[in-house]
Each structure stands twice: as C-alpha cells, then as structure tokens.
C-alpha cells in the first residue's frame, strides 16, 4: 500500500506563544481511514490545518505522496486542491446556491467550463444525497444538509485525501446520523481520510486506525481496537469521561 500522507515531527507554536503541537508524526496509507480523537484543546485541529497549510507549522515535514509540501516554494494552491477539507462549521459560501458552491472550485481551480463543472457537481451531490436541494441557498438548509454539501464540495475536487475536522460537532443529535452515513460510505469506497471526531463509536466502527492526541502529542495510537482496550492511563480516562457525557 502506498503512503499517501506522512507527517514527521510536526510542531506548531501560535504567535501568542501557545505550543499547540509538540512533535506529532504519523502516516496515512492509501485507502486508509484514520480517526484522531482527544480532548478539546489537544491540538487536533492544528494538526489538520497544518497539513494543508491553512496555517504554517513551526517545524516538521508534511509529505503528500512523498513530495514535501510545507516548503515556501511548493505550489500551495495545487497542494490544497489535492487535499479535501471539511470544517466543523461547514463554511459554505452563503451567497452562492448549493450547486455553485460546488462548481466554484472546479471552474476556477480545475478550469472547467460551467457545463462540465455542473455535471461533476450533480454527480457528487447525488452521492451525498443532496441533489434535490441543488438550487437552495445554504442559509435555507439544515445543519446536516449543509455539512453534506460541504463534503460534496471537497469531494468534487477529487482529492487524494480528505480531512474532516469534527464534521458533526456543530450538529443537533438527530442530524448527525446522515452525515456519518455519508462519511462511512466514502470510507467504504476506499477514500483515504483523516477524521477528527468525538464520535467514539464511529471511530471504532469506521476507522482503520485511531490516533489519540493529548496536550499536543500522540499519546496512543493503533488499530481501532485500542478503543476497547486502551493501553495508556490517559486514553482510559479520556474514554471514560466521554462515556459519562453520554
């Protein structure tokens, strides 16, 4: 199996001095789905955002299919278009209809004609089951629908890896299911993905591998079975605190 994404000794110190990530390394293989879990503030989002350089890591390497992408001269726009990103708060473009949200990148990054782009867009909308709302404005969609459109927007670019940053955390409980179903579908199709999530059951069932982060470092990692038999005290505590919440 080919190594799609590889992170070596990543550090990030924010301008204010917060050392949010302190030497994180992991690899993601072709077709693998990796779940990152950990308490809030442990640096999960920071890692994801450093991967496609929405923020610059202070130190460390990020390789996409072996190619260093966190050097100043890398074609950052090309790199980003090869990495799909889904945000906690959807970040749909409020002034554009659903379909135009999706065609925007295809037309201006992939340089497709409008017709071509719309054909592609309809395809991914079908996949996330949002075809019937293609002419709605994001403001008129429910949270779950918004997130599925956001997933479609990222998918349309045909990324080599998808990054999900807590895709369901902003959703009402009854809306979470549809989004998780969509992500599970992608995993089943063999999409390479990194999912930051608080849904432990989802991590257990869908992820091939689980990474547990705490205070900016990878505290434990392994196959999804570690959730049932945690090795470290820290993960044990974290898992029990989560089940208490439920």
């Amino acid at each position: 199996m080919e190594n799609v994404l590889s992170i070596v000794d990543m550090h990030k110190t924010y301008p204010g001095g917060v050392h949010a990530v302190r030497g994180v390394s992991f690899d993601v293989m072709e077709g693998e789905s990796v779940a990152i879990i950990g308490s809030s503030g442990s640096g999960k989002s920071t890692v994801l955002r450093c991967i496609n350089r929405l923020i610059e890591p202070t130190k460390g390497e990020v390789r996409l299919r072996g190619e260093m992408i966190n050097i100043p001269n890398a074609d950052i726009n090309d790199v980003r278009s090869r990495i799909g990103m889904v945000f906690q708060s959807f970040e749909l473009f409020a002034h554009l209809r659903v379909i135009d949200n999706i065609t925007l990148g295809l037309r201006h990054v992939r340089k497709m004609s409008r017709k071509e782009a719309e054909r592609e867009a309809l395809e991914v909308l079908e996949k996330v089951d949002m075809l019937d709302r293609k002419d709605a404005f994001p403001g008129n969609l429910s949270g779950g629908q918004k997130q599925r459109v956001a997933i479609a927007r990222a998918l349309a670019m045909k990324p080599e890896v998808m990054l999900f940053d807590e895709p369901t955390s902003a959703l009402d409980p009854e809306l979470i299911g549809s989004v998780l179903k969509t992500i599970r579908g992608l995993a089943d199709e063999g999409m390479t993905m990194v999912v930051v999530t608080h849904e432990i059951s989802f991590a257990r069932e869908v992820a091939d591998r689980v990474i547990y982060m705490d205070k900016g470092v990878v505290a434990e990692s392994g196959p999804s079975s570690v959730i049932d038999s945690p090795q470290t005290e820290r993960l044990k505590k974290f898992l029990s605190s989560i089940s208490e919440e439920d």
């Binding site: 955002r49 496609n52 929405l54 726009n77 090309d78 980003r80 278009s81 090869r82 990495i83 799909g84 990103m85 945000f87 708060s89 970040e91 749909l92 473009f93 409020a94 002034h95 925007l104 990148g105 201006h108 990054v109 956001a150 927007r153 990222a154 670019m157």
Partner: peptide, 29 residues
C-alpha cells in the same frame, strides 16, 4: 468569518480569487 477564507483556500483558490469570488461578494452585500 475567517472560515470563509480558509474554505476558499482549502479548495485551492488563491488569495485574490478567494477575495474576489467569496469574500467581496458577501462583504459588499
């Protein structure tokens, strides 16, 4: 919201494209 800029950049638009296609149309309104 700054997330709009990030979302634009994350699909591969450059800074000026994101400004022109995403930020400005919303800001003007």
């Amino acid at each position: 919201p700054s997330g709009q800029m990030e979302a634009g950049r994350s699909i591969g638009l450059n800074y000026m494209q994101t400004m022109r296609l995403i930020i400005m149309p919303q800001a003007i309104r």
